[in-house]
Amino acid sequence: MDFQPTEDQRDLRAGVRALLEGRYGREALRAAVDAAAGTGTGTGAAVDRGLWRELGEAGFFALRLPESEGGVGLGLPEAVLVFEEAGRALVPGPLVATHLAAGVVPGAAAGTAVVTAFDLAGDLAGDLVAYLGEADAVLGAAVLPVGEPVRAADPLTPLHRVARPGGAEASASASRSASRSVSVSAYVSEGALLTAALQVGSALRTVELAVRYAGEREQFGQPIGAFQAVKHTCAQMLVRAEVARTAVYAAAVTGDPGEAAAAKLLADGAAVGNARDCLQVHGGMGFTWEADVHLHLKRAWVRAEQWRTAAEAEELLAAELQDSAG
C-alpha cells in the first residue's frame, strides 16, 4: 500500500507554499511582529485581512466544504497538508477556527470573516480567547464576548481575558457557557489535528533553520555543522518532526479521535522541542529579536495549549487503552 501523497496533493501543497512565500514571506512576518510589538502590550493587529481574503479565495477555509456548497470538496488529508504549510510560514490568526466555521459562520469560507474559538488551555469555556479583538465571530457563541487585552508570549497571538458577569447575570452566563461548550466540543478532534499540522510545519521549518545556520556559522575554522554534537542535534530534530508528521498524516486518513490526540501530543513535542534545539544550534544569536527562532518557540507554546493539551491527550489515550484492555 502506498502512503505517499498523490500528485494532486503534492501540487496542492506546492501551491499553498508558493502563495505564502509570495504573500507572507519573512519580510511580511517581521513587519507584522514589529507592528504588534510596537504597541507595547503585544496585542496589536495580527490578522492581515487582505491575506485572509486571499486564503479564502484560494480555498483554504472552504477546502472541506462540498462543492455543492461552494467548497473545494477535499478531505482531512488535504487539509493537514495546507495547514502544515501555514505553520511553516508562521501565518498568524485563528486559522483552525475559521476553517472549522466554514459553512457555519457567514463569510468564514470566503475569508471575509475572522472566526476564533474558546480553545485555549483545554477549557472550551475558558477565560482567555486568542484574536478576540480582531474576530467577527466566536465558534459556538451567539455573540462576541467582552474581553480585556492580556500580554501574550507570542506577539502575533493577541489574547483577551473574557469578562465573567456576576450577580443576576451569572446563571444565564453559565447556561450560555455550557451550551457553547457542547457546540464547540464537536470540533475538538479536528481542531486538535489541524493544530498538530501547524505544529509539524513549524517543527520542519526549525530543522531547516538549524541546518542552514550550522552550515554558515564557523568555529575553529570550520562550520559548526561539522561537529558531531551539532550533527546529532539536527538529526534528532528531523526524526522528531518526521515522526510527528507521520502521525498527523495517519490520523487525517483514519479520522480516529485517539489517533488525532496522539498526533497532537507528538506534534506539540516536536514543535517545542525543535524550536529549543534550534535555539541551541544558533547559540546566543538565537535569543535575539532579529532571529526568527524565538517566534517559532512562542507560537509552539501557544498552540500546545489549544484544542487539546498534552494532559488531555494522555488522558484520552489512557482511557482508550483501558477500554481495549477491559
Rank of each mutant, 00 (worst) to 15 (best):
L128W: 03
V146N: 05
D127H: 11
A121E: 15
V114R: 11
A117Q: 10
L132M: 08
A152W: 04
E148I: 13
A125R: 05
G122H: 12
L144S: 08
T116N: 01
A117G: 11
G122W: 14
V146G: 02
G122P: 13
V129Y: 02
V143W: 03
A152T: 12
P149H: 09
L144P: 01
G147W: 08
A113L: 05
V150L: 14
A117W: 05
Y131K: 05
D136G: 10
V115N: 03
G126C: 12
E148M: 11
T157S: 09
G147N: 09
D136A: 00
L120I: 13
D127W: 08
D127C: 03
P149G: 07
A135R: 04
E148N: 09
V138H: 07
A153F: 13
V114M: 09
A152F: 08
A113D: 04
V150D: 03
A142T: 12
A113R: 12
D154W: 10
V150W: 02
A153K: 14
A113N: 10
D154C: 06
G147H: 11
R151P: 01
L139T: 06
G126R: 09
F118P: 11
T116C: 06
L156E: 14
L128F: 14
L144Y: 03
V115A: 03
D123G: 01
V114G: 04
L156Y: 08
V146H: 11
G122N: 14
A135L: 04
L120C: 01
G147Y: 10
G140P: 09
F118S: 13
Y131S: 05
T157I: 15
